[in-house]
């Protein structure tokens, strides 16, 4: 049981240098991994490849030795760095959560989501508030792998600690793997069992 990137190559345009070159990574189910790299080294690109938003030019992304499923809710969920770009601006937030399989009361409580926010549009909430919806949406989808791409950089440290505690608890309960992309070494030390430096892959 693992999510694997096997010798993947990726670039956004032909003839440009590779962003990811012969990159291999294996994440076991239930593992907690932190991914480091300087800005612009392809952390987000790798996250998007692993979650199936991009296709590698060479190499394979395998989930339990099979390609990622093309239909239904993907078992590899990506939580993005910029929540304002990850939520349909024309949907009320209730619909955003319903899309991921219904609104779970325990999630609303755990993330401090006010019932009043459900009938609002994304532009009426702050970045930190929107991010809680994105995390709640990813967790309610019962994913086996959660990729957290700098999810807490726009949150205050108390909310950051709260959200990570919920994620780690849920992950523990359902044996979910967590791949955290972060720049904060102190945070990585708290949440991850294993650390990977992207330039080394």
């Amino acid at each position: 049981m693992a999510l694997e990137a096997k010798n993947i190559f990726f670039r956004y345009r032909n003839k440009k240098p590779w962003i990811l070159e012969d990159c291999t990574l294996r994440v076991e189910k239930g593992e907690r991994l932190a991914l480091f790299a300087p800005s612009g080294y392809g952390k987000t690109t790798l996250a998007m490849l692993l979650a199936g938003y991009l296709k590698p030019i060479k190499g394979q992304i395998l989930l339990e030795d099979k390609p990622l499923p093309q239909k239904g809710i993907c078992p590899v969920q990506l939580i993005c760095q910029h929540p304002e770009n990850a939520i349909n601006p024309r949907w009320r937030l209730r619909r955003v959560l319903e899309e991921a399989g219904g609104i779970r009361e325990d999630m609303l409580d755990a993330f401090g989501i006010e019932t009043a926010w459900l009938s609002r549009f994304p532009r009426e909430l702050s970045g930190g508030e929107l991010q809680r919806f994105c995390v709640a949406r990813a967790i309610s989808s019962d994913a086996d792998y959660l990729i957290c791409d700098e999810i807490s950089t726009m949150l205050d440290v108390i909310t950051q600690a709260q959200i990570w505690n919920v994620i780690l608890n849920e992950a523990e309960k359902h044996n979910t793997a967590v791949i955290a992309v972060t720049h904060n070494r102190h945070l990585a030390a708290k949440i991850a069992e294993r650390t990977v430096e992207l330039p080394d892959l």
């Binding site: 440290v157 950051q160 600690a161 990570w164 102190h186």
Partner: peptide
């Protein structure tokens, strides 16, 4: 003080509850 204590390097301990809603 609570902010300070919630930093990952200082304990990573969040306090209970949430900021009240503006309304």
């Amino acid at each position: 003080k609570a902010l300070w204590n919630a930093l990952p390097q200082n304990g990573f301990q969040p306090i209970e509850g949430f900021q009240p809603y503006a309304g």
